[in-house]
Structure formats: C-alpha cells, structure tokens
Amino acid sequence: MTDGLSNPELIELDRRYGFYLRRRCRVLLRDAALADDAMQEILMKLLRHGAAFREAPHPMRWLYRVTDHACIDLLRRGRRSRQASPIEDAEDLAHPGVAPDMRRAALDALALLDEEEQKVAVMTFVDGMTQQEIADELGYSRVTINKRVAALRERLDAVALREKGS
C-alpha cells in the first residue's frame, strides 16, 4: 500500500467531503481563487501522502486539520487578498455555538496571529471546540489553553471594537 490515496479513493473523498473542505478554505482564506489553490494543494497532498485518512477515527476532523495546515501555510506565505473578499455565504453557515462577532474578528485577525494562535483561534472561534478538546488536540493542559483563549479573546475584542467603529 502506498503513502497516498488512489484516484478512486480521492474521488470518493471529494464527493463526500469536498464541499465542506472547500467551504472551510473559503472561510479561512476569504478569497475564492486562493481557496481553490488551497483545495488543489490539499487534494494533491492526499493523493501523495493521505493514506492515514483510511484509518482516521473522525474523518472530517482529520481532513480539517489537513485543510487548516494548508490554509495557514498559504496565509503565512502571504498569498492572500482577504480584505476584498466578503464571506457572507460562509457566515451564513457559521457554527451555532460561536458568537458571530468573535468569529468574524478571529477570521479578520487570522493572518496577524502566530501559528499556534491561529490554531487556537480556528478551533475556538470557528470550530466551536471546547478548551478540553483543543488541549487534547494540541497536547497542552486545559489551563494553558484557557490562558491562550483569554489572551486571544482580549485581542479579538479589540478587533471587533475597531470593526464596529469603522
């Protein structure tokens, strides 16, 4: 068995999960063309190195981490033009447990955060994960995550306030 998925596996994966991965790319990158680039990179990665997907206990969770990595990598490389791109359609399908203004502030500020903050911000304000879930995912204590979320929230509150003022 190779490290990657076969063409039929990739096609089936895209049929079942593709919409959700593309939506996530659009939410994180807020640029349709860039999201398309990200999606292409993700599918290529899966084709070459995605064999672990077959054993993933939570397929969508596994795929979202691959997606986040690709999107954050693109943001870090500066290939973005997020300011001009509305995300109304993505907002319409925001997670029910996350306050819309905090979600928007997190997405607005995403490119300004460091990699660790980006992960915590996405898991907290996009995915609606509990602090314990985030701690388990990132390998930190819940107390550490609590402190990071509090610091992030303070920063994002300022972003949200600026947004309201502008």
Binding site: H95, P96, G97, T124, M129
Partner: peptide, 9 residues
C-alpha cells in the same frame, strides 16, 4: 466553549 458538537462533528 460550546454546548454544541464542534463543527467537524
């Protein structure tokens, strides 16, 4: 953070 399942779920 949320009483709802996470978005991936």
């Amino acid at each position: 953070m949320s009483a709802h399942p996470a978005s991936y779920a």
